[in-house]
Write a protein that binds this DNA or RNA. Structure first.
Length: 648
RNA sequence: GGGCCCGUCGCCGAGCACGGAUUAAGGCGUCGGCCUCCGGAGCCGAAGACCCUGGGUUCAAAUCCCAGCGGGCCCGCCA
């Protein structure tokens, strides 16, 4: 017999049996669904129901009496996975029949193998997961790296759930900052990168932005002084000071580049003007500007691709924001929004009245907003006629919905308001179904303990650095532990261990909480880390290798130890964990599950011999258990994109 | 000023969406053990938490509601 979800099978049986018992013993009771939960203590069984507490109220009887009556009324002849039903402390406790349950679970895992646990949804959909979408201006830094880790895990999970998933990278090349790099790049005479492309672009961006900012502040300061605006003068001086400090930092770090850029840029009286001109030209789709900015963006993206390849993340589509501007899509959406009646003009600026949409369409309930919560308006178009980021994002979102039924945006929680306004815009345009299938998957930031990360200021640790360091430390670790391996083997292991550790660390924490970056945390190789789970997987593989036989028809009922039964239960509940994490979009659940299973297995491993068990039959049963653990650990790691190695 | 998120042992953190049984999981760190045994990136044990505070709902609250305090983020003709 094979079950895709053994524990659910048991739960269903308990529910049916209890519902029957309710009908026969307490026909006067009205219960819609019978509550069923995991008891705190295994001696109370594997599932327990607290119906009696509910009923006690209505029937005015003691919970303990009701529970006893229900336990008695249970029809034992219909037990298959249940061993016994008992009343205790007012609860009705269900004990699983381990002989049968172990057999069902382990045989199912043996049969389903790499598919075990991945229960398919009955409503498969086309889903677009947009993630990463780092601006092509500088290398991906550790603060941003949480995004692709989560996004990729989500995509893997949703796809395993039976959805048709497409991964999209939104290239945000429209906006002043792209013109800033391009400007610096031209000033330098369009140099060929002499290092990893995105790092190269990042330096040009930071230095150029800094120099331009200083230039701007100086001019503003002079103006302020001229009209004797003391307050402005003070504020501007402070800002100028800050940027001057940054400039000297940059000059020290990259003296040649800094010198070259600073000489070239100082030749322009007003670099800001140049940049704005380029920006407008790009939005208008002028060929020269198009050619230039795409060229710089492509250089940077090439660097991103290298990093992504390294962490085994891929995208099905790279979507250029500029394409939406150049085609009529943005202006079309703008037109539709204006027709909707929720847009007003204020001094030549177009504003979207999100609050009005919420109020007239009665959306507070659907959006989870409080009664009097303010929803600020969104500026759609500047006075000079150019559009803003969120405006363009509306067009992009509709484009996505032409290709999918569901859209998941993996975007930091600092953009919650913009994402909310975007959703409201969908309602305003009459795309109600789309709005409901639009999900902002928000996550909190990764922060550095010392200072604030800022890509504009060049204050960041790059993702590449973190990966390099992780692999380096993993290499030292492997060399210490397994000196007999060849250099080649060590390098390979160091790679998946180091990268796995980083991936796991960025996924493991609840997305609502910020991650404070420390090397110790991200490069953890001990319990509760990818390497720990990987090691456990390799250990299981090693046992199976050593046994060198595939047990035929193992007698699962021989698995009578508590440690073994706990393992069976843990294995049996993997499908539940998977479904839950897919439905509630909680990738960290998978990491936690894998770690907990590894824990249990290691305890078992230390306490009970597998190959050298007392009898061959018992050894066979334990080998089958070990094999099932191998399969499930591998399936779980697969969901979060971590390699499950046979050796390490 | 308004909104969103968060507050659990010295530190980090599960559990909270769906309230349940006087043992609130783990990990790090501290202290003490374990290789005649299948991989010690491991295992076992000890110490450490009135789950931010105060109310409320309930037979039952870490979990739900209200108020407060503390931290992060957002409220731009930036993205």
């Amino acid at each position: 017999m094979v079950s895709v979800n053994p524990f659910a099978e048991f739960r269903q049986e308990c529910q049916n049996i209890l519902a029957e018992a309710l009908k026969t013993a307490l026909p006067e009771a009205e219960v819609e669904t019978v509550p069923m939960g995991k008891p705190s203590n295994p001696s109370f069984g594997q599932l327990a129901s607290s119906v009696s507490f509910e009923l006690a109220k209505h029937l005015k009887r003691k919970p303990a009496d009701l529970a006893a009556q229900l336990a008695k009324a249970v029809d034992q002849t219909r037990f298959t996975l249940i061993a016994k039903v008992e009343a205790a402390g007012g609860y009705v406790n269900f004990h699983v029949n381990f002989d049968r349950f172990s057999t069902l679970t382990l045989e199912s895992i043996g049969q389903l193998g790499g598919e075990y646990g991945f229960t398919k949804t009955d409503q498969p959909a086309k889903v677009i997961v947009e993630h990463t979408s780092v601006n092509p201006l500088h290398p991906i830094h550790i603060g941003q790296a949480r995004n692709p880790m989560l996004g990729d895990a989500l995509a893997r999970i949703l796809s395993r759930r039976g959805n048709q998933v497409s991964r999209h990278y939104y290239i945000d090349d429209v906006g002043r900052q792209s013109s800033v790099v391009a400007y610096g790049y031209v000033k330098l005479g369009k140099p060929v990168p002499d290092e990893k492309a995105d790092h190269f672009v990042g330096k040009i961006y930071t230095i150029t932005a800094c120099l331009v900012e200083i230039n701007r502040l100086k001019r503003q300061l002079e103006q302020a002084k001229a009209v004797q605006a003391t307050e402005d003068t003070e504020k501007l001086s402070r800002e100028l000071n800050e940027w001057t400090t940054i400039a000297s930092e940059l000059e020290e770090k990259h003296p040649q580049l800094f010198k070259a850029l600073s000489e070239k840029i100082s030749q322009d009286a007003n670099p800001e003007e140049e940049i704005n001109r380029l920006n407008r030209a790009y939005e208008n789709g002028e060929p020269q500007a198009k050619q230039l900015i795409r060229e710089v963006s492509d250089i940077c993206l090439e660097g991103f691709r290298q990093t992504q390849k390294r962490v085994e993340i891929s995208y099905d589509s790279w979507d250029w924001e500029s394409d939406f501007v150049w085609s009529s899509q943005v202006s079309d959406v703008l037109g539709q929004l204006q027709d909707s009646g929720y847009v007003y003009s204020e001094g030549g600026v177009l504003e979207f009245d999100a609050k009005k949409v919420v109020d007239t369409q009665n959306l507070r309930g659907k959006l989870g907003l409080r009664a009097e919560q303010e929803v600020p308006p969104l500026t759609l178009v500047r006075a000079d006629g150019t559009t803003l980021y969120t405006t363009r994002d509306v067009a992009y979102t509709l484009w996505k919905f032409d290709r999918a039924e569901r859209v998941v945006n993996v975007i930091g929680m600092e953009q919650s308001l913009a994402q909310l306004q975007l959703k409201i815009a969908l309602y305003a345009l009459g795309y109600e179904k789309q709005a409901e299938n639009f999900v902002h998957f928000a996550y909190n930031l990764v922060t550095l303990p010392g200072y604030k990360m800022s890509s504009r200021r060049g204050h960041y640790i790059t993702f590449d650095e973190v990966l390099d360091e992780a692999v380096k430390r993993a290499f030292e670790e492997v060399s210490n532990r397994s000196p007999q391996l060849t250099e080649e083997e060590k390098r390979e292991i160091a790679d998946f261990v180091g990268i796995g550790a980083v991936r796991y660390a960025l996924i493991d924490v609840d997305t609502g909480k910020p991650v404070v970056f420390t090397w110790d945390r991200v490069l953890n190789f001990e319990t509760n880390s990818a390497p720990y789970v990987q090691y456990t997987h390799a250990r299981a593989c090693s046992i199976l290798r050593k046994a060198a036989r595939k047990p035929q028809n193992p007698a699962y009922e021989l698995l009578k130890e508590n440690l073994e039964r706990e393992l069976v239960l843990a294995l049996a509940s993997f499908p539940d964990v998977f479904v839950e994490c897919a439905e509630y979009l909680k990738p960290n659940m998978v990491a936690d599950y894998a770690n907990a299973l590894a824990d249990k297995f290691n305890t078992f491993y230390n306490a009970l011999p597998v190959i050298k068990a007392d009898s061959t039959q018992l050894a066979d049963a334990r080998l089958a258990l070990t094999d099932a653990i191998r399969v499930v650990l591998s399936n779980a790691l697969n969901l979060i994109g971590v390699t499950a190695p046979e050796k390490m």
